[in-house]
Design a protein around this nucleic acid. Structure first.
Lengths: 369, 369
DNA sequence: TTGTAAGCGTTATCAT
DNA sequence: ATGATAACGCTTACAA
C-alpha cells in the first residue's frame, strides 16, 4: 500500500524522496545519491547515471538539504550578519561577497542584528543550529559574543568592516586611521584650525580607530589634540548625529569644521547645522567616512573618505572560503586603503579667502514634510 | 570507550548532542527533548526538567535544527527575497517584517535576487531544501517561477510591494494607481500640461500599475493620454533612469514635468536634466515614488509619493504567519494607501507665475568625482 | 512521569 | 559498478 494521506485529493503531492527516485529508476537509493552527486557520478555507468537523472527530473526531485546536512555536516550556506540594513554601506559589501560565494556554490543569507548584541547572539546560534558553513560578521563590537559562539560551534568566521581588537579572527577592514588622516589633512589645507570630531559609538572598532586617527593626524600637523573637541554619538545614525552635533556646537561654538566618523552621522550633522541657521560648507565644513551610496547627491554633496566596498566584500568572501577549506590556515588581517572624495561640504577656514577651486557656497533647500 | 577523535587535544570539543545531555542528566534522550521543548516541559517533574536544563547549560547544548527539522519538517525560519538590496526602500520593509516575525519566534533571512529570475529560482529552491517555513517575496515579476516553486514545495508565500496579476497568492502592495494619480494631480495643479512618464521595467507590477495610473489620471483631468509621452526604463536604477530620461527629453523637448515610476529612476532623471544644463524643479519638474530614505536630502529634495514601508513589512509578516497556521485561510490582497510628499523638485508650469508657496528655484551643486 | 523504538532523508562504508 | 546497512540527531506515538 503506497503511503498516502487519507485526503490525498487535496494534499499537495508529497515531495519526492531519494527512495522514490530509486524506485522510479529501478536502482538502489545509494545509487541515486551517487548519480546526483557530481563528485561521485563517475563511479556509475553512463546508462544508469542517465536513467537516474531522468527519473529525478520526472519526479521533480530535490534532495533534502536537512537530511544531507545531517549526514555531511555541511549546508553550502553562508550567513552574513550586518548591524543595520538601513545603512547603505552594507548592501554593496554584501552584494560583492554574495557574488564570490555564489561562484563557489554557496547561498548567502543576510541577517540584520540591529546593533543589538542579544539579537546578534540569537542569530549566530540559529545559524549554528542550521549548520551554516561560514559566517561573515560585519556586526561585531566590543563585548560581542558572536566570534566566541562561532568558535564554539567550529564555524569559520571572518570579520568585515569592523575589527575586534585582541581577536585573532581573520578580518577585512579599512585603514581607518589613514582615512581620517586624509580628511583632517584636507581641512587643515583649507585653513581650518578649530576642527571637532564627531566620533562613533563606543565599542565599535571603526569608532575608536577613527578617533585615534583624528588625534594622531592633528598631532602630526603640530596641533595639540587636546585642543580639539571630540564627542561620541550614541549610534551610527542620523538622529544620533543630530543630537551629538548639537551638543558639540553648543559646547564649542567657534568650530569651523567637523570630521564625522561616518556618513550617517553627517546626515544628522547637516540637520544640526541647518537648525542653527548655518550653512554646511559655507559656515561649517563637514567630512564623512564611507562614501556610502547617495551622499554624492545630498545637499551639499558630501566630501568624504571613500572605502573599497566591493573589494571588502569580495576579499572577505575569499578569506572565508580559504578558512573553510583550511581552517586556521590564514589568519590574515587585511586593511584596505581609503581615498578622499572632495565634493561640496568643505570650504576655506576663517580668515582665508575662498580660492577659485573652492566650491560655491550652497544654498540650503527647504526640506518638505 | 567514549567516542573521541584521536587528536582530541587539538580537536574542538564535539558539539554536544541530545544523548550527551541525557547521559549528563541521567535521563533518557526523549526526556531531554521534552524538557527543552516549552510545549512539553509540563509533562515532566520539576526536578527532572531542572536537572536537564542544567546539564544542557553545562554542555552548551544546542539542538541541531537539521535533525529537528528532519523530523518536524519545520525550521522556524522565514526567508525574504528582495530584488535589489541597494534600493533603500527594501531595508525598512525588511526591518518591519523582521520585528513581527521575531516576535513569533522566527529568524528572518534576507536574500538578494539581483532582479535575476534564475537567481531567484535558485534561491527559492535552496530555501525549500532548507525547509524555510515561509517566504516573503518582494522580488516577483512576470514570468517569475518563485511562486510556482513555493507552491510546489508547499511553502506558504506572501507577495510584498509587487503583485503578480493573475496569481491568487496573498499580497501586500501599494495602491500604485492612486499614488501616481496624486503626483499627476499635483503637477496639473501647478499648471503643467506637457507631462511625461518615466515608466518602470517591463513585467513588474509596480511599473504596469503606475503606468496605467498615469494614463487614467490624465484622462480623469480631461487630457488625452495619447498626447503624453511614456518611456520605460530598463531597470529601477539610476543609470537606467538617466538613459531613459535622456531619450525621453530628446524625443519631447517641450516637456515641463516628468512623473517617475520610482525614486531610483529620479536619481537618473536628475542627472539627465543636469546634463542638459537645466535645473530640476525650475526648468523641469520631477516626481518620484516610494519616498525612499535619503530622497529628502538630495538636491533638490524630491517631491514623491510616500508609501507605508513599515506597515507593508509588518502586515506582510502578519499575513504570512496566518498563512502558516491556516494555509489557504486568508487569500487577501491588501493595498496600502499612499500619500504625496511635496518637497522641492516641482515648480509651476510654463506661463504660470510661481506662487508664494512655490519652492525657491534650486541652484545645483557641482558633483565632485 | 518517564523509557522504548521507529523514522525523518540522506550519505558513507562496507560488501558483492 | 551497484546493493545493503548503518549512522547523522532529533521527535513522538506508544508502552510502562
Amino acid at each position: 500500500m503506497p503511503r498516502r494521506a487519507p485526503d490525498a485529493a487535496t494534499t499537495p503531492p508529497a515531495r519526492a524522496t531519494i527512495g522514490d527516485v530509486a524506485r522510479e529508476a529501478g536502482v538502489h537509493p545509494s545509487t541515486v545519491s551517487r548519480a546526483l552527486n557530481p563528485a561521485t557520478r563517475s563511479m556509475l555507468s553512463e546508462a544508469v547515471a542517465l536513467r537516474v537523472a531522468d527519473a529525478a527530473q520526472r519526479l521533480g526531485y530535490r534532495a533534502s538539504a536537512l537530511a544531507a546536512g545531517l549526514r555531511t555536516r555541511r549546508s553550502r550556506t553562508i550567513a552574513i550578519l550586518v548591524p543595520d540594513l538601513v545603512n547603505p554601506i552594507f548592501p554593496p559589501i554584501v552584494r560583492a561577497a554574495e557574488i564570490r560565494l555564489a561562484e563557489a556554490g554557496y547561498a548567502t543569507l543576510v541577517a540584520n542584528t540591529d546593533n543589538d548584541p542579544a539579537r546578534e547572539e540569537w542569530l549566530v546560534s540559529r545559524m549554528a543550529e542550521h549548520l551554516v558553513d561560514g559566517l561573515l560578521l560585519a556586526s561585531v563590537a566590543q563585548g560581542s559574543s558572536a566570534l566566541a559562539l562561532a568558535a564554539r560551534f567550529a564555524i569559520p568566521a571572518v570579520l568585515v568592516n569592523r575589527r575586534l581588537p585582541g581577536s585573532t579572527a581573520p578580518a577585512v577592514t579599512n585603514d581607518d586611521r589613514a582615512g581620517i588622516a586624509l580628511a583632517v589633512r584636507h581641512l587643515l589645507d583649507l585653513g581650518h584650525t578649530r576642527i571637532g570630531h564627531l566620533a562613533g559609538p563606543a565599542g565599535v572598532s571603526t569608532a575608536t580607530d577613527r578617533r585615534a586617527g583624528f588625534r594622531s593626524a592633528l598631532r602630526a600637523a603640530g596641533i595639540d589634540p587636546a585642543t580639539a573637541p571630540i564627542l561620541a554619538a550614541g549610534a551610527y545614525s542620523a538622529p544620533a548625529g543630530l543630537a551629538a552635533t548639537t551638543a558639540l556646537l553648543d559646547a564649542h561654538p567657534t568650530l569651523t569644521a567637523i570630521v564625522c566618523a561616518n556618513d550617517m552621522l553627517c546626515l544628522g550633522a547637516y540637520d544640526a547645522i541647518a537648525a542653527r541657521g548655518l550653512a554646511v560648507g559655507r559656515d561649517i565644513s563637514v567630512t564623512g567616512f564611507n562614501d556610502m551610496p547617495f551622499v554624492d547627491r545630498i545637499c551639499p554633496p558630501l566630501t568624504t573618505v571613500r572605502i573599497q566596498h566591493a573589494e571588502m566584500g569580495r576579499s572577505a568572501a575569499e578569506m572565508l572560503l580559504e578558512e573553510i577549506t583550511r581552517p586556521g590556515g590564514t589568519r590574515r588581517d587585511l586593511r584596505l586603503g581609503p581615498t578622499l572624495v572632495v565634493r561640496g561640504s568643505c570650504a576655506g577656514g576663517p580668515g582665508r579667502a575662498l580660492g577659485a577651486a573652492a566650491p560655491r557656497p550652497p544654498i540650503p533647500h527647504p526640506r518638505g514634510a
